[in-house]
Amino acid sequence: MSDIKKFMFVNRKAPYGTIYALESLEVVLITAAFDQDVSLVFMDDGVYQMKKGQQTKGIEIKNFSPAYRALDGYDVEKLYVDKESMDARGLTEDDLLVDVTVLSRAEMGALMDEQDVILSF
């Protein structure tokens, strides 16, 4: 695929309650494998996807959170988290699995405007 576009994936849903977060991650990895310019956004309940210390043994659902740590191996390095969403959920950057760029709502809106394709799950 010759044409490179800016793809943004907007994650607004918490993990485990629904499958969206896991299947979204699968699309992100494939998109990166096709050498596209990938940005990953976590806002609203989506910030819970990035919470450290997920233990899913008791619910017998696969814990996919370690995959976020592997993202840079796929050249997915643009991870953005909305500050307002973290604040509203009592989370800080120390609670997150990986290093991210924390953005204000205005910065997030401006970043969205730069994209060619926006997918949300």
Binding site: R12, M43, D44, D82, E84, R105, A106, M108, G109, A110, M112, D113
Partner: peptide, 12 residues
């Protein structure tokens, strides 16, 4: 659902 509110607070 807060989708609309989130959109109004975020989009330029």
């Amino acid at each position: 659902d807060i989708a609309l509110e989130s959109c109004l607070n975020t989009a330029t």
